[in-house]
């Protein structure tokens, strides 16, 4: 029982990271129709930015996190403007190639700047608490709480502010939004900045527990892609639910069944679900 609770806790913590990362990705994929395969690598860059601000410059964890989010937001704006916007009128596969180019670029950028050796961000909250017989470190709890706060905040932003409403408008009808005077390019840049910013939040929350390496985003990015498709492109609840689901599947599957094949479960589940429901769990009928 204790083991089960421990695995549940692990699964939820992991699911929180997946949920935030997938949330950012579903925004650009669903709303802007950009298959941003480099999303995991932006997450990686977010972690390194935190290292730079909090570790190298010594500004402390929370200030480092804010600056990292801001830096990644800027990277998002630049990426949208110089990489994806010129490809707007081309087939999606071309944007996908550009994404592969971006991820190669980002990974070797980190390699050149910070080297191949793993880097550590000092854990700001190394304490641990015992509850119901399971051990939880404070930083891990922070990941879970941070994810909930971020999701709630984003929801309020989308529903209660004008900026959020314009994003929704563009998502529903790009031409229509343009006709009502919305600057679609500005909305695209904003959406992209939010997407990369959330990736930086995820990286900042979780990297004190782990270690930074240039290739840390590759598998995560792919999983986020899977979650987004599983939940249905552009579906925010789909991404959140899919994220938590994947975290739990992995923790329980990896703990109880087979650690070597734990990734297979998630990917096989996706094939199965899409074979039955070709547009994902929460997807709109046709893309």
């Amino acid at each position: 029982m204790e083991l089960f609770l421990q695995q549940l806790f692990n699964g939820i913590m992991f699911g929180s990271t997946y949920a935030i990362v997938a949330l950012g990705l579903t925004l650009v994929m669903g709303i802007l129709n950009i298959p941003n395969f480099a999303h995991g690598h932006l997450y990686m860059l977010g972690g390194y930015c935190l290292f730079f601000f909090a570790g190298t410059l010594g500004l402390g964890y929370w200030a480092g996190m804010v600056l990292s989010v801001a830096a990644l937001g800027l990277v998002g704006v630049l990426m949208e403007k110089f990489v994806y916007r010129p490809l707007n009128d081309q087939p999606h596969i071309n944007a996908f190639i550009a994404a592969v180019g971006s991820l190669l670029f980002l990974e070797s950028f980190a390699l050149v700047v910070w080297g191949p050796q793993g880097l550590r961000i000092p854990n700001p909250h190394p304490q641990a608490i015992e509850l119901l017989g399971i051990t939880m470190s404070v930083q891990r709890l922070l990941v879970i709480i941070g994810a909930i706060v971020l999701i709630a905040g984003l929801h309020l932003f989308m529903k209660k502010t004008i900026a959020g409403a314009t994003i929704e408008a563009v998502a529903q009808n790009r031409e229509g939004a343009m006709l009502t005077g919305i600057n679609v390019n500005r909305v695209s840049a904003m959406t992209f900045a939010i997407s990369t910013g959330t990736a930086a939040v995820a990286a900042s929350l979780i990297s004190p527990i782990f270690m930074l390496s240039p290739s840390m985003g590759a598998i995560l990015g792919m999983k986020a892609f899977v979650i987004v498709i599983l939940g249905g492109m552009g579906s925010v609840p789909g991404a959140i639910l899919g994220g938590y689901l994947l975290g739990l599947i992995e923790a329980l599957g990896g703990g109880y069944i087979s650690a070597a094949y734990k990734d297979v479960f998630a990917f096989a589940a996706l094939i199965l679900i899409l074979s039955i429901k070709p547009t994902g769990l929460f997807g709109k009928r046709e893309v």
């Binding site: 083991l3 527990i209 782990f210 650690a259």
Partner: peptide
């Protein structure tokens, strides 16, 4: 309980199972 040290950084799922 093996884990992929090259792609993963969290081993809590495997560790919990092993330590149990």
């Amino acid at each position: 309980k093996p884990a992929n040290y090259y792609t993963e950084t969290d081993y809590s799922a495997q560790l919990s199972a092993v330590l149990a």
